[in-house]
Amino acid sequence: MVYLDLFLTFLLIGFTSFGGLSMIPIINSEMLRHGWMTSAEVSDIVAIAEMTPGPLGVNSATFAGMRVAGIPGALVATFGVLVPALTTTLLAAMFLKRFKDSPLMQSVLYGIRPVSLGLVAATVVTLSQANYFTEGMVQFPSLVVGAIIAFLLFKFKLSVPKLILIAAVLGLILA
């Protein structure tokens, strides 16, 4: 039964998100709803998924499925999150050329932008709660690392792997 739950959960996640960071609030919500993980564990899964090669959604599904039900769970969750993308990609490829200049299609794409931005903002809030606050206490070392990384990102436009390495070193030093 857990395999069916994993498949349907990640199928839902795949169909109701736009990929990437927009999946995180939904993944967090579903993991908490099923009691499979805490917010802190979801935050850890997302961090690992971001550091490993591949799409965030696939990596998160794989790690979450593995955590919940081992290798079979990882396979089922990964397949569940991929089905929507495969389905929509095939449909889009069939109809994109026909509808690409349609005013309706342009309106749909225009409407998706603010929704995606809202989901990314929700991700920032959700992950900030798990990473910067523990039991109602502000984690100042985490805030310092986050501020330094944000500064380096915006000021010097460092690559993500470099920022991850710097954050890891700072975390080891400050924690």
Rank of each mutant, 00 (worst) to 15 (best):
P141M: 03
T16K: 03
T134E: 14
Q129Y: 14
G19N: 02
M1L: 08
S107H: 13
G136K: 07
V120D: 00
I71D: 09
L172F: 11
L104E: 00
I166H: 02
M137D: 06
L8Q: 08
V83F: 00
L172C: 01
K157M: 07
S29G: 01
F63I: 15
F156H: 14
I164G: 02
V108W: 12
P84Q: 03
L119T: 07
T126W: 01
L86R: 05
S29Y: 13
T16P: 05
G73Y: 03
V125A: 11
M23N: 13
F7L: 10
G19W: 05
A93M: 13
S60A: 14
G171Y: 10
I164L: 13
T9D: 10
P161C: 03
L91Y: 10
I24S: 04
L21K: 13
L8G: 04
I71S: 01
T62K: 11
A74I: 05
G118S: 14
Y110R: 15
H34W: 01
F99L: 12
N59Q: 07
A69Y: 13
V124S: 02
I164R: 07
P161A: 06
G14L: 05
I48P: 01
F133W: 14
A167W: 15
L91S: 09
I71V: 12
L21W: 12
A61C: 07
P55G: 15
I48F: 04
Y3N: 05
F154Q: 15
L165V: 11
L117C: 00
A92E: 08
L32C: 04
V68Y: 11
L32D: 11
T89P: 06
P161D: 00
M1R: 08
K155H: 12
V138Q: 13
K162C: 12
